[in-house]
């Protein structure tokens, strides 16, 4: 998928994925959810990091493919993921006792 130059997006055609890609992504999400539920029942302490990675993966799948972030201007990715940088200190402060 050629990345579209942000300044010519409105006038040039997009390259959105076809239905097949959506179905593949859907299958991926379903499988990951099943794995997550499975992982939830093991009790060792690596359970939490794995769950976080799995959920981040699922979230990325939806954002990149379903929300066309991978095919649209990089500005949109910056607008969406930029705020997460500012959230880190807030989450960190609420995690320390």
């Amino acid at each position: 998928m050629k990345r579209v130059d942000p300044n010519k997006e409105a006038l040039q055609p997009h390259h959105y994925p076809g239905s097949r890609t959506y179905l593949l992504v859907f299958a991926g999400l379903a499988i990951l959810t099943l794995i997550e539920v499975g992982v939830a029942y093991i009790t060792s302490d690596i359970r939490v990091p794995i769950l976080i990675i799995l959920s981040a993966l699922k979230a990325l799948l939806v954002i990149l493919f379903f929300m066309h972030l991978r095919y649209d201007s990089r500005w949109y990715a910056f607008i969406f993921f930029g705020p997460l940088v500012l959230v880190i200190p807030l989450i960190w402060i609420s995690l320390i006792r």
Binding site: D5, H14, Y16, G18
Partner: peptide, 16 residues
């Protein structure tokens, strides 16, 4: 993947 011929209003940054 196919082409989308959607027209958007022209803008300074080219984004819709």
């Amino acid at each position: 993947p196919h082409l989308t011929m959607q027209q958007s209003a022209p803008s300074a940054t080219g984004l819709d």
